[in-house]
Amino acid sequence: MQRLLPMVHEVLAEAGIGASELDCFAFGRGPGSFTGLRVATGVVQGLAFGADRPVIPVSSLATIAQGFARSHAEFSGTLAVAVDARMDEIYGARFSVDGNRVTALGDELLVAVDQWPAALCEADAICGSGWQLAPSGIERASVCQIDIEPDAQDVLTLALQGDVMPICATQALPVYLRDSVSWQKRTRVRTTSL
């Protein structure tokens, strides 16, 4: 949180342009740490609203897939990304990778580790921290990169690819996937207000 704007400023200064000269803002919209997503979302909302420019929300799982494609230039095939979602769950998604071109195959999932989705096992390559949690007996593809995090340059690649339409800053929101955490509701006796 404290480093974000100074880093934005440093990058813009290095490029010799001001925030108001940018055409669009791309950001990692999740899934991931709720607080981390909101820091990025809040800051990008502020930047884009201030500069009066649109926003391109980019999937964090797609960003990881794009990073994998960048570092495996020779690879072509399907890729299964899994990220540790805590609470014994993972965020997962499948992509097709063809050179530098990454395309999502189906929805992003939030699933329990002990219900490891078969779809993730059928890929030609796997990546992401979530694979460390895969139960024994789950077969892993031979092409594998566990240690990979989303990188801003891959957010840019995906944003420039044009698959995601730019939206208004007010619509730039995190995608949590986990929307129904079971906080305990209070038990009520009264059926009407007193």
Binding site: L5, S20, T35, R38, G42, Q45, G46, G50
Partner: peptide, 19 residues
């Protein structure tokens, strides 16, 4: 803290973009 971060993030970033 999480609630404060939203307003502070939006506000500080907006001021930066507006100069």
């Amino acid at each position: 803290i999480g609630a404060l971060m939203v307003g502070a993030g939006v506000g500080r970033a907006m001021a930066y973009a507006l100069g």
